[in-house]
Design a protein around this nucleic acid. Structure first.
Lengths: 354, 354
DNA sequence: GTGAAAGCGCTAACAA
DNA sequence: TTGTTAGCGCTTTCAC
């Protein structure tokens, strides 16, 4: 690969001049010099060495991206969007890491990012405490967190991009209630993330508003490990078996899953237990992963504006990378219900038996 | 962040000595010196700067990973496996890029990898011609390609890791034939990759062996764009409508999809057209994405040993990165049929009508 | 308008 | 056994 000096020699100028054109200071030289330099760059197919550049400037066009597991279709969808936008709009590349929601893995990833000179990071849906990230901020990292709200009343050193999880759960729950369901369950995994907590509040709020406090229960499954992809649906399958085993008169007639992966598992498990969705039980998910539309029955779920959120994530990172003074903020997006086929009225016999 | 000189000062030695311990040359110094240096490193929480190191050595513990789209669950699964293994076994991080099977995007990704000093790359399932990658090899990159076979008779500058696609299709087709199907279709996307070509051969071979040449047709859908995730299933959905529209006596009684995403779309489309799987039509996929088990009906498919393949990919990269003399090779893995619920005997009336 | 020189943090001969 | 030295490729004052 040719280097700056090669270009300089070929153009009959010094390396500094080449560097000037590379860095947009084209006004500092004669028109004709500029032309020669540009020609030399093109002929040599010269690309400046990012490493050397970084050693000098301290910056590198690279973003860190932490996900619990890239095999989870929801994280895959966001990751794709983030990568594409960072690349096309800003020429940044992505360094990705699966954290499996493990604190040590996260910490090691941060260390490596620092060592690689990466200064911008997006953290998706981590279970690990905020403190952890704040200190990353103190180490000079610019971080944007997705799928966690800011801790209320604390002014955070990081940006928060999230969806209104309370509203998402409320929407879904009201949809169920509107279909006549009176015995509801919210099914989630045991680890409590902030987003899960908010969804539970939204669920309870909608239930309370309809006077169903007694009929609204939260079911938490304990995963063996917290990978977030196959594991989440596996958990749904397991919980479905338990739910199906309840006596028909007590069993909820509708379940709201913490996310689509869980919902898919739930549907599979219900089916295995001989219960039909939505005839015997209605199911709603959250995320609107593209697969949900392909299910049988197609899953009713809550849609998230993934591309828009990715856009905000990337732009915030760039903004704060360029100017450290920009204050951090919270950016919340609104979800919307997508009604498909997995919700129906409760089975007649049971709704009578209440 | 502290630097090597800080450690040196604190330990009362020179930077070279610290560098020596960093690089494992611990025998070159007094035991007690080593202890002091190690203590200083620990106290300062010193981590060598990868960038500076790379500028000197020309290496960086980073691998490039090209995928058509990380939102596709199959690529997500492989990517996760590769990232985890590279990280845990070798301390390498991953720079990821979505190529959308676009030649320009691929080329730009290669350029950026070079500029960042990355020397090892894995390319997943690219449509782009081999020539392209070979020249990347000449530029000093060590590349491993997944899901393409080597071009027969050409000794390639890159490694090929793949599954026996011929065998995968053959297995699936024979499964269908064993269930009594005589009119078969292989459904794929229009762009011809090498893996698709092999699958088609396997399909034809199995059909011919059963004397079904006339009854074995290949259907190619043309995607609007070639993203590889939602697009693939969308394509399946469209093709399903066409297939369902054929007169019942001519319509295939079983379809083999080029991959699971396509199969899921096919099942959804068939259902929309009022055809039931497997009663009216059997469907088989390939890949065994974890979602396939959750479908209704659960998808019969061909399983790929993803973790093992990822292992080989990573180890090959490391081996050749460490020693440029290691010859390239082809590594083929065997698939296995996973029989679930989407295959049954052909509908009685139609099988009579042959 | 252009170039010389210093230095980013590290490694690896080579000296001592 | 340890230290000195000379860069890796680039950017950026500061002179000219």
């Amino acid at each position: 690969m040719s280097k700056i000096q090669d270009v300089a020699s070929r153009a009959g100028v010094s390396a500094s001049t080449v560097s000037n054109v590379l860095n947009g200071r084209k006004d500092r030289m004669a028109r004709e010099t500029l032309a020669r330099v540009e020609a030399a760059i093109a002929e040599l197919r010269y690309r400046p060495n990012t490493t050397a550049r970084q050693l000098k400037t301290g910056h590198t066009p690279l973003l860190g991206l932490l996900v619990p597991s890239i095999a989870n279709p929801m994280y895959g969808a966001i990751a794709r969007e983030i990568e594409t936008q960072a690349q096309e709009r800003h020429g940044f590349r992505i360094m990705i890491g699966n954290t499996y929601r493990d604190k040590d893995k996260e910490a090691r990833f941060f260390d490596d990012l620092m060592a690689h000179g990466v200064r911008g990071v997006v953290i998706i849906s981590s279970l690990v405490d905020e403190q952890h990230f704040e200190s990353a901020g103190e180490r000079g990292l610019v971080v944007v967190s997705y799928d966690r709200r800011a801790t209320p009343g604390v002014d955070s050193g990081i940006d928060h991009v999230s969806v209104d999880n309370f509203e998402a759960a409320r929407l879904a729950t009201e949809h169920l209630i509107a279909h006549g369901h009176r015995r509801l369950a919210f099914v989630t995994a045991a680890g409590i993330t902030m987003s899960r907590r908010e969804k539970i509040s939204g669920f309870h709020a909608a239930a309370a508003r309809a006077g169903l406090t007694a009929g609204a229960q939260v079911i938490e499954g304990t995963p063996h490990n917290e990978y977030g992809d196959a594991v989440m649906s596996e958990l749904g399958r397991l919980e479905a078996a338990k739910i199906a085993a309840m006596p028909a008169g007590q069993r909820p007639t509708a379940v709201l899953a913490v996310n689509d992966m869980m919902a898919l598992g739930l549907m599979a498990g219900l089916r295995e237990a001989g219960l039909s969705v939505p005839a015997d039980m209605s199911v709603v998910g959250m995320d609107d992963v593209f697969l949900s539309a392909l299910m049988q029955p197609a899953l009713t779920t809550v849609h998230l504006p993934v591309a828009e959120m990715a856009h905000t994530i990337v732009e915030r990172l760039m903004l704060r990378l360029a100017d450290a003074e920009v204050p951090t903020g919270e950016f919340m997006f609104q979800p919307s219900l997508v009604s498909r086929e997995s919700v129906a009225r409760p089975p007649a016999s049971k709704s009578k038996s209440i």
